[in-house]
Design a protein around this nucleic acid. Structure first.
Lengths: 151, 151
DNA sequence: CTTCTTATTGCAACTATTCGCAATAACCTT
DNA sequence: AAGGTTATTGCGAATAGTTGCAATAAGAAG
């Protein structure tokens, strides 16, 4: 049983959920990984310490952490990746051609979210967004063969 | 064999792909549906006219149409939906609480895309984006019980 | 119209993900 | 510390989606 933040426990309890070793291990695993993890990678890591854990629990807990807003999920290249929701949300720009990923300036996103809030009265949760498009290098060298690529 | 737009045929041929009855039927089915369809719904519709078609072909073709930018895919509530990529891309705001969907004003999106292009030199493809958040009604009546909801 | 090349299909096996349900165990109450 | 309530887990079955491969057929060439 890892030492888990008291916040986590309180957050769950205040909404009627329970703190289980599985949830602690899974959250811990994603947190320690730093980057993005697939459900299978999470399973592999947690499984070494807690061999009895089932894949179903991995999926359910990952989903649960997202609902708690402690983690965020993102789709990319046909896979779902999870990571800890950082203090400041961050966003990615993914190039359709070269697959490169670059960060998207938070300021630009903020302005957009604010505009939607003001003009349409809708409060967007910009936890984590991945947008697709063309990076500068690929836009310039617009000749590359593409063909069936992804997945 | 439905009468298919010559454009579609040319587009495929110019990139070395082939026009098959399956592709025509699938594109036609999604087009006629007007709205969003799941792979299974597409299968059901196409299957009545072409019983020999396999599910694998449905998945592959739907994927293919997205790469051709003739269709767009969107994730929503654990399902993947496909629809024809309209002339003007459109976007949705989905409320996390009530599940309601409302359109997002294209102008706001355009400004954002333009800003990213100008400041970060990245050309976002805003084919179709679904953003999550809170609609006005739910933001005001901020008391609703949530609990494990989605999926 | 026939032949040739190879993109595309259908099948079947396989992997990924979800779901129902009985057993378990958090957490509240006494 | 013991008991009760019910959220959560693990299991196994069900469903969804993917992949390898041999057979098929679209489109190019003669």
């Amino acid at each position: 049983m890892p030492v888990m933040s008291v916040d986590f426990a309180n957050k769950l309890h205040s909404e009627g959920y329970r703190l289980t070793p599985q949830r602690q291990l899974i959250l811990e695993a994603v947190r320690k990984a730093g980057g993005h993890l697939t459900p299978d990678q999470v399973y592999a890591r947690v499984h070494t310490r807690h061999p009895a854990i089932s894949r179903a629990t991995i999926y359910r807990t990952l989903d649960f952490l997202c609902e708690m807003r402690l983690a965020v999920a993102m789709q990319w290249d046909g896979q779902t990746y999870y990571e800890i929701a950082g203090e400041q949300p961050h966003h990615h720009l993914i190039c359709r051609t070269c697959g490169g990923i670059e960060p998207l300036a938070p300021g630009l996103v903020d302005s957009f979210v604010e505009a939607v809030s003001r003009k349409q009265r809708f409060t967007i949760d910009m936890d984590h967004i991945a947008l697709f498009g063309l990076c500068e290098r690929c836009r310039v060298g617009k000749s590359a063969s593409s063909r069936h690529s992804s997945r």
